[in-house]
Design a protein around this nucleic acid. Structure first.
Lengths: 185, 185
DNA sequence: CCGGTAGCATGACGATCGTCATATGATAGT
DNA sequence: ACTATCATATGACGATCGTCATGCTACCGG
């Protein structure tokens, strides 16, 4: 039973990963259960052996993805000194590669408004947002908390606006301006 | 023919308005053509006398709504002096009432990521974003353009994060931090 | 080697989607 | 007053959605 249980947990992880990528690429409502299962290498019917509903999957995917991002920022903010930690977090977020690879990008920028409309998910999401702002604050001088909230806002907004911009130069300008606003020169 | 043509244009406007509110409330893919027509006081079949497809409606709704927002910012930035114009634009955007009334809110915050996935809409959207940043820049001192890009990023991000926050106090903190980042004290 | 169970596949259900062909009804010009 | 036309309604189409009942297959414990 040990082996089979591991197998099931691994398959479950594949479904979560597939759903995360597809949701970020096309939006939550644009992706059906069959597309998710197919991307995970399975067929659609078995889905309900793993999740009670599509909504339950959505809640778990968003919570897990944001918790992972929060953990990464916490780790960076504790391992490195303030200046380099800030640089690593902000620069990887405001990287044109992040803008281009939405399917692996931060869910705040790919699914933020969609998640805001789903009340069941918002508790866990708020928790991760708190952890991210706290990690950012640890990297900042002065009025840390206010600066951290402003920095996260600018980072999320800049990535959204960069993805909306038809013109690559304008997109790069948003990223650069947010970088400066987050405390980097 | 004059009167009937006016009537048709007015009905068309009602459809656009209904679609705008429903898209912002529930997301583009979550709203069907029949829900839009019903909200406009009509039945679903007549839709295709006004728009070639749902996608065409989406493109027109997003372009029109953002163009109207851009025009409002331009008007404010020209009518008032720098300081009060900035205050009027930023404070109305970072108002808790804006966060609460998503169905009438700025589409950058309600549909930003969803519009970014629809290539047909992005040209007109980029144009409105340019007009908004230019209007903001007119209200700012110093390195105007960079400050305007950072301010718009922070404003969009703060409203998204405030809508995601389960806790009203945290939501208010995001709005306040972005207000400060936009140059208000 | 055998039986049972866990993991997944097959196939079907009602509902809803975007789209369109066609019918109805009111209005406007003659 | 008649009729042509335009704005909207009705109803249907194939496709796809989320969900579930059921069937197959392969591995595990004995």
């Amino acid at each position: 039973m040990r082996v089979t249980s591991d197998r099931k947990a691994e398959t479950r992880g594949r479904i979560l990963e597939a759903a995360g990528a597809l949701f970020r690429s096309h939006g939550i409502d644009a992706v059906g259960v069959d597309a998710i299962m197919h991307q995970a290498g399975l067929t659609h019917g078995g889905f309900y052996a793993y999740f009670a509903s599509k909504e339950a999957l959505v809640a778990e995917v968003s919570a897990a993805s944001l918790a992972r991002a929060a953990a990464r920022w916490e780790r960076i903010s504790q391992d490195a000194d303030q200046a380099t930690a800030l640089e690593r977090i902000v620069d990887s977020y405001l990287d044109p590669a992040h803008v281009a690879a939405a399917e692996r990008g931060c869910m705040l920028t790919t699914l933020g408004p969609e998640m805001a409309r789903r009340p069941e998910s918002r508790g866990a999401i708020t928790d991760s947002i708190r952890r991210m702002t706290d990690a950012l604050a640890r990297c900042l001088p002065g009025r840390r908390r206010q600066r951290a909230l402003a920095a996260l806002s600018a980072m999320v907004g800049a990535v959204v606006l960069a993805r909306l911009s038809d013109n690559p130069a304008l997109a790069a300008e948003f990223l650069g301006a947010a970088r400066k606003a987050a405390g980097l020169r």
